[in-house]
Design a protein around this nucleic acid. Structure first.
Lengths: 106, 106
DNA sequence: GTTTAGGTACGACCAAATTCGTACCTGTGC
DNA sequence: GCACAGGTACGAATTTGGTCGTACCTAAAC
């Protein structure tokens, strides 16, 4: 069962949820940017400047969080999102490399 | 541009289409069974005994074909489906291993 | 206290995906 | 010829997913 903030444990991640989350280009872009940054990097949702409304940004980050790809922690008035790199690599080795290798263009 | 039967070339495969195709458990089951079989194995759609109607089976195989994951060739009165193993490994190395490693249970 | 910025919650909308039934086509086998 | 099995095409119903506007909350800054 996910914790009070909606984070599944590493063992609760499912390939279905992870692949569905990564099927969206915007969410893949978030994961790619986090994966390309130094490990442990935490950024606010707004810092990604996604070309959608605030409500839609929240939706995408919830999808990523509930799939187990990111961890969101309260930090004052904002919430920092960090990639769950080791959890992902443990459950689905090689997956992050596929996302990182994608040409971000379109 | 895909060929007359809807197969994209290796260079035309997109991560979006491939991940969306693999997000469905039934389609992942097809890919997993093909990936676990000897290379070059070709099977009919019906041989997978998916728990859905014939029309739905056709839909799922079209999704897999248009994503570039399988190749379907006419063989008399049926169509044999084969995994495009080398194309997939070239474009998205490690992806098949993730699907194969999944526990098929749920 | 007031304002402001970052996020969330809710309801709504529209497009796409999933499913099915039915009709149809094409070879194989009798 | 005829029946049959494997697939496809089409249309329809339902669900899901991405998007938005608005209202609201919290903490920092003033």
């Amino acid at each position: 069962m996910p914790d009070s903030e909606g984070h599944p444990s590493a063992g609760e991640m499912t390939l279905s949820a992870v692949l569905a989350a990564l099927a969206d280009p915007l969410r893949r872009r978030v994961v790619r940017e986090l994966a390309s940054a130094p490990d442990g990097t935490a950024r606010t949702c707004a810092s990604f400047a996604l070309p959608v409304s605030k409500a839609t940004v929240t939706h995408h980050f919830r999808t990523l969080r509930e799939a187990g790809l990111i961890r969101q922690v309260d930090r004052g008035n904002s919430r920092m999102a960090a990639l769950r790199r080791t959890d992902i690599e443990t459950c689905f080795p090689g997956l992050l490399a596929l996302v990182t290798a994608e040409t971000p263009a379109p």
